[in-house]
Design a binder for these strands. Sequence first.
RNA 1: CCGGGCUUAGCGAAGUUUGGUAUCGCGCCUGGUUUGGGACCAGGAGACCGUGGGUUCAAGUCCCGCAGCCCGGACCA
Length: 478
Amino acid sequence: MAKEKKVEQITDMEQDFAQWYTDICLKAELVEYSSVKGFTILRPYGYAIWEHIQRIMDGEFKKTGHENVAMPVLIPESLLKKEGELVQGFAPEVAWVTMGGGEKLEERLAFRPTSETMFCDHWSRVLHSWRELPMLYNQWCSVVRWEKTTRPFLRSREFWWQEGHTIHETAEEAQKETEQQLNCYADFCENVLAMPVVKGQKTEKEKFAGAEATYAIECMMKDHKALQSATSHYFGDKFSRAYGVTFAGRDNSLQYPFQTSWGSTTRLIGAVIMTHGDNNGLVLPPQIAPIQVIVVPVAQHKPGVLEGAQDLCDRLQKAGLRAKLDQSDNSLGWKCAQYEMKGVPLRVEIGPRDLENGQCVLVRRNDGEKTVVKLEEAETAARVQLEAVHAALYQKAKQNLEEHIYAAYSLEEAKQLQQEKGGFIKTMWCGDEACELQMKEQAGMSSRCMPLRQEHLSDVCPICGKPAKTMVYWGVAY
RNA sequence: CCGGGCUUAGCGAAGUUUGGUAUCGCGCCUGGUUUGGGACCAGGAGACCGUGGGUUCAAGUCCCGCAGCCCGGACCA
């Protein structure tokens, strides 16, 4: 028995977390590797998860007045080069198109690694007056960055994302937008993905190339490594100036608008896998699960069972749940294992005995808890159980996060805590990049963020002993 | 990009040392019996052995190049 199971089995996360992750990506049929390194195929089940993320997040963006647009995938080199810092930051990982129709191009074209330049170029032509501001744009697309080491969802050479780009009349307004979108991501992670986050600002070293300030949400995975799950940048008028984006102000003077950009990617799916998954496979938060309820008939050849199961499934669908009936002739055990592996949050079992008693059995994916409910109450009961799954996932993830944040008061202590416990190590910091590099060299950790919710741990930087300015969370990141 | 390992059917492997035209399990297809936690029987299909060159009468096997995957390190959503 044990031997036959081998093929479908998923490596235990305690034994090899990286392999566990890869197993889930492949065996839950989220992705397939393509023939070009670092380019992955999102399979129907994986893409459906992304579609739910898109649908819900897009709705949130629209609530605050954002509009979707589509920008070209290719950027002329001369255009990309106009903003020095951005080019420097991205140069090592830009892919270039040098030929077109068999002829060498006059100017090479970059595959967009991000679209600030295209938005600025566009705005430089269409913006005229303060009355047209703000412009609140977003686009859903894929971008290309020539990464050296690649992993599905976490780091690939092409990835799917949304990038919001906005311009505003005043700095204050743009700063407010930056903050609003950071909060939007944090709320999305908590309310939809059941992932608690740490909101914070990136250090100078870690911030986005060309930004004046970068904010991010950091999540903690089950192996206690950190994963940056979304970012929000404030640009000031730096790009406006570089690209000549101007408008006539209220006093008729020529002004530069203030700009933001913010993004989140299919990496969120990787975050979900490593936040909620277990040794039986994927565990999906109900709101983004392609199948929320799987109806499994028991002894389906017996009279009335299949009909009863179909009936129940129809009713769940009518109630607005994404329900599916599996009437294949695979065994019950196979079906249970299969949908557990695919992370379906709720399973409903219905067999001859249930039909006799006018009931069905609801089984939660996250903890295997079974609840017997009356058939006529199935819709409500399913909804209640799905909410319970979300709440339990969030609680467990929150506990994982909170239990793995440690304060350190010396470099040695920080190093030791990281080695023994992992997670986020919080210390005070003087603000010098030299100390950041020290931490990386000595303790193997990079600064994750300066949390918006600051604490005063001590007066000095534990690395150099100089007066401390802020508290920083350090960690090993994906 | 640097170091190590790997690549044989959809998946997992044997065969490579000692060259002779590919084997097994799972999965898949057909029929039947089954179904309260990965069922069973019978029959069947499926592989130019990652790719390009070389050595040889003969290459999955030996030699050289390249690509891809995995694990570390340096770089980044």
